[in-house]
């Protein structure tokens, strides 16, 4: 999708890296151990492309956290992991070394907080740097099959013509645990104008 120029795209990547870096710092403080986060790839895709990418790249069962946001851009953001590894991540966060069979409600909450910190920092950094406002709802953790993902993310309900998906790969590393997840930002394109304008204003200021 060529909604954004190369410069604008680079700027978004940079802002996401900044947000993820702040989230890593916040998480490190929370768990008293080093949390490393990096963004190896970021792309803007359409809803059909997103569905294809999910089918291709994601494992059949997922755990995740989603949060609605509104402000200079509107939509729904989600953090997604292979379900089999989500418990490992929670255990690494709380410093336990156990292999429970399934994720319990307390672990869902912990996962929700992890996603909350990550998504909030990304969105807040994006908004703050662009001198914009964004508001987020409370996070919801879920465990679903990959087929249910588009429904969960509201991809069907929203007008797919007017929806843009920002898909961000994210690598976690925490206490001997390393895993790859995805951040998906389902952005209502009707708000994209404000996004582009803000990006251009930011770039113009740099020059």
């Amino acid at each position: 999708m060529d909604l954004f120029s190369a410069d604008e795209h680079d700027l978004i990547v940079e802002l996401m890296n900044m947000g993820v870096g702040r989230a890593a710092h916040a998480l490190s403080q929370l768990v008293n151990d080093e949390v490393l986060l990096s963004v190896p790839r970021l792309e803007f895709i359409s809803v059909p492309e997103a569905q294809q990418a999910f089918r291709k790249d994601l494992p059949p069962f997922l755990a995740g956290v989603m949060q609605d946001f509104e402000g200079f851009i509107n939509g729904r953001a989600a953090l997604l992991f292979p379900e089999a590894r989500s418990l490992e991540l929670v255990n690494a966060m709380i410093g336990e070394d156990l292999s429970a069979d399934e994720i319990t409600e307390l672990e869902h909450e912990t996962l929700a907080e992890l996603g909350n910190i990550l998504l909030n920092h990304c969105l807040a950094t994006l908004a703050n740097q662009l001198k914009q406002q964004v508001q987020t709802d409370i996070p919801q953790a879920f465990s679903i099959s990959a087929d249910e993902l588009p429904g969960t993310l509201n991809l069907y309900q929203s007008d797919s013509e007017n929806t843009l998906v920002m898909l961000v790969q994210i690598d976690f590393s925490l206490r001997n645990s390393a895993l790859r997840g995805y951040l998906a930002f389902i952005i209502d394109l009707r708000s994209a104008d404000a996004f582009v304008t803000a990006l251009r204003a930011y770039l113009a200021e740099l020059l």
Partner: peptide
Amino acid sequence: GRILSYQL
């Protein structure tokens, strides 16, 4: 929006 979980 924030959540503060018991485990953390």
